[in-house]
């Protein structure tokens, strides 16, 4: 199963499900990241982590460890 972490710069995908249900994930959902949301992987930071994504028309950064918990198709 591919996760948000596996996307390449410029690649767009739709979120399928989450592997975690913790407070951090609640926060991401409040920011509009949920099943069915379209995300674009913009780039990763100079040291490879965190990553930058484009979601609902704004840009958000999150760590790869978190991106791995978000399944996409």
């Amino acid at each position: 199963m591919r996760t948000l972490n596996d996307l390449k710069p410029g690649e767009t995908a739709v979120i399928k499900s989450f592997t975690e249900n913790d407070a951090d994930m609640d926060y991401l959902m409040e920011l509009g990241i949920m099943e069915g949301t379209t995300v674009t992987f913009v780039k990763c930071a100079p040291l490879g982590d965190p990553i930058e994504i484009d979601v609902r028309g704004y840009h958000l950064s999150l760590r790869r460890s978190r991106a791995r918990c978000i399944r996409v198709n």
Partner: peptide
């Protein structure tokens, strides 16, 4: 506690 998290908006 939870490990430090880093979810941050990158505003225009």
């Amino acid at each position: 506690g939870t490990p430090s998290s880093f979810v941050m908006e990158l505003p225009p």
